[in-house]
Amino acid sequence: MTETTVRPASELDAHDVLALYEQMQLIRRTERAAHDLFMSGLVKGTTHLAAGQEAVAVGASAALRPDDYVFATYRGHHHAMARGATPEECLAELMSRATGLCRAKGGSMHLTKASSGMLGSYAIVGSHLPMAVGAAWSARLRGTEQVAVAFFGDGTTNIGAFHESLNLAAVWRLPVLFVCENNFYMEYTPIGAVTAVPHPAADRAGAHALPSEVIDGNDVLVVYDAVRRAAERARAGDGPTVIEAETYRHFGHSRADPATYRPADEVERWLDHDPLDIARDRLGALNVSDDAVEQADARARRVVDDAIEAAKNAPDADPAEAFTDVWADGGNAWRT
């Protein structure tokens, strides 16, 4: 069954932390593959890559119960994978294959793994915050002690649904976590240029009488502990928490965006604060050998290389799929 208590980061052993590192490496390599496949024309439409933001997804996921709910944005590959979607399922979805996570009906922006509580990636900014509030409300009504987590970007904090959600969740004291991945850019615009407060999520929490925390979103153990504490509070009936995890994306906003609007020294500073490097330092402090880390890297590389091959060789989406899954009976009839 599910664990009822999650250990503090200080009690995680070398094996635990190495597993978190390997998962981040798996996401990093999958995102790189998604980028390369997009540039070579095998992924159509768009992608919003989360390379650089892996620690938020992996740290948070490790601090949650398997039956908790997660809602993400169109930049959500890392959240799907952190909740158990495989690189192969994800890449196959991006490549419009029948074996894709959503059978090629969602695409990059809608990765979903409902069987493990990852209830979707949503491409209308802020739309999923009320859903997470509703999932938390449902958990309360069913008495399950599950929590719901909404991950969102800094740009989301200026849309109405964000404020409606924080207020309703606060008034109803629901077990929901609002986790902002502040990567400092609302698409192509610095968040500070369009937001009146320095911490777009955390500084708004007080207006809804919610506790908040600004954390280093690139340190997987810092994220883990912050989410663990917030989830504990939520399960105890103490209501929602706003966590603002500062992080940085390594790629542009979407597609082939080179992100030249970001100052070079800023990019360099953040690349020197890479979540994988930080995790490697953590592993060093736990006396994990370089050899063990390299083996984890090799495993991740192999899984992603195999995933790329499998996705490339998978059959295209079945044309009949266009007409299934509109209704719960599987069909789409709108008239007699």
Binding site: F71, P130, M131, A135, A136, W137
Partner: peptide, 10 residues
């Protein structure tokens, strides 16, 4: 939105 989240979860 909350109705939707609740409907998705039982």
């Amino acid at each position: 939105g909350a109705a939707m989240g609740a409907a998705m979860t039982g």
